[in-house]
Simulated scan of single mutants.
Amino acid sequence: MKIDVLTLFPEMFEGVFGSSILKRAREKEAVTYNVVNFREYADNKHKTVDDYPYGGGAGMVLKPQPIFDAVEALSQHTSAKPRVILLCPQGERHSQKKAEQLSEEEHLIFICGHYEGYDERIRDIVTDEISIGDFILTGGELGAMVVIDSVVRLLPEVLGKQESHIQDSFSTGLLEHPHYTRPADFRGLKVPDVLISGNHKLVDEWRIKESLRRTWERRPDLFDHIELEPLHQKWLEEIKKESR
């Protein structure tokens, strides 16, 4: 996968792309990162990328020309048509499902805006508008980092175990079950007996039930979007009764 990032602050990505899973993905050649200061594409003498909004108002607006030229130039380097992603508070709320969808692509271009907003015409070359939540950031850089991390970790061979991301929260539609490690007794806080019983069938059942329980207690709205197996639905009803 090739990932291009258009930003006015490329230095923000140095530590992120050079650390942890994102670094490992690059070392395994699962992904290449290319961070571009789109000011380089400005066609005016002073390399300005923003201007005052028509009709008046506070703040500055990103001009279309530098973004259009940058996206067109980057699109020429790969045969696959890129997905062009605009980080925007008006966009679709990012989700695990969206991350899985984007992980199937060969080329992603992220546009990180700043200032008051974008010239509306920039949306003509955008395929996806994504928001990471109902709040405002100073720019799209942090949002792009979040989306990129969620996508790259899904690429084949990036995580230590191929099944790791399958069990993540939201991958199944539910929140993930609790995890424990050694020691079995820490300051009187004990690991559930079932996890050290050696009975894999019971362990699997416990994990599913705890996933259902945690989702019901913390994010019951998620059940509106998933269809449970009959047995899991039965367990959920039992959990509901226990919580009353």
Score class of each variant (00 low, 15 high):
residue 4 D to L: 07
residue 5 V to S: 06
residue 6 L to Q: 03
residue 10 P to T: 01
residue 20 S to A: 11
residue 21 I to P: 01
residue 22 L to Y: 12
residue 23 K to M: 13
residue 26 R to Q: 15
residue 26 R to V: 09
residue 27 E to Y: 06
residue 33 Y to M: 04
residue 33 Y to C: 05
residue 35 V to W: 07
residue 38 F to Q: 01
residue 38 F to R: 00
residue 41 Y to R: 06
residue 42 A to W: 09
residue 45 K to P: 13
residue 45 K to S: 14
residue 48 T to N: 09
residue 50 D to N: 05
residue 51 D to K: 12
residue 53 P to V: 13
residue 55 G to C: 07
residue 55 G to S: 06
residue 58 A to M: 07
residue 59 G to M: 08
residue 59 G to S: 09
residue 61 V to P: 08
residue 64 P to G: 09
residue 66 P to K: 00
residue 68 F to K: 13
residue 72 E to K: 15
residue 74 L to T: 04
residue 75 S to F: 02
residue 76 Q to D: 12
residue 80 A to E: 08
residue 82 P to M: 12
residue 82 P to H: 11
residue 89 P to V: 05
residue 89 P to K: 06
residue 92 E to P: 08
residue 97 K to V: 13
residue 98 K to C: 04
residue 98 K to D: 02
residue 100 E to A: 10
residue 102 L to A: 00
residue 103 S to C: 12
residue 105 E to A: 14
residue 107 H to E: 04
residue 112 C to P: 05
residue 113 G to L: 01
residue 117 G to C: 04
residue 118 Y to N: 04
residue 122 I to A: 00
residue 123 R to T: 06
residue 124 D to A: 08
residue 125 I to P: 00
residue 126 V to I: 08
residue 126 V to T: 04
residue 128 D to M: 03
residue 131 S to P: 03
residue 133 G to W: 07
residue 138 T to W: 05
residue 141 E to I: 02
residue 143 G to H: 03
residue 144 A to C: 10
residue 145 M to I: 15
residue 149 D to P: 14
residue 151 V to Q: 00
residue 153 R to D: 12
residue 155 L to C: 06
residue 155 L to A: 12
residue 162 Q to E: 15
residue 163 E to Y: 14
residue 164 S to N: 06
residue 179 H to M: 09
residue 184 A to G: 14
residue 187 R to L: 10
residue 191 V to F: 10
residue 196 I to W: 13
residue 199 N to E: 00
residue 201 K to E: 14
residue 202 L to R: 15
residue 204 D to H: 15
residue 205 E to C: 07
residue 214 R to P: 00
residue 216 W to C: 11
residue 217 E to N: 04
residue 219 R to E: 09
residue 220 P to G: 06
residue 221 D to H: 11
residue 221 D to L: 07
residue 223 F to D: 07
residue 224 D to I: 03
residue 228 L to H: 13
residue 230 P to L: 13
residue 235 W to P: 09
residue 237 E to C: 01
residue 240 K to T: 06
residue 240 K to F: 00
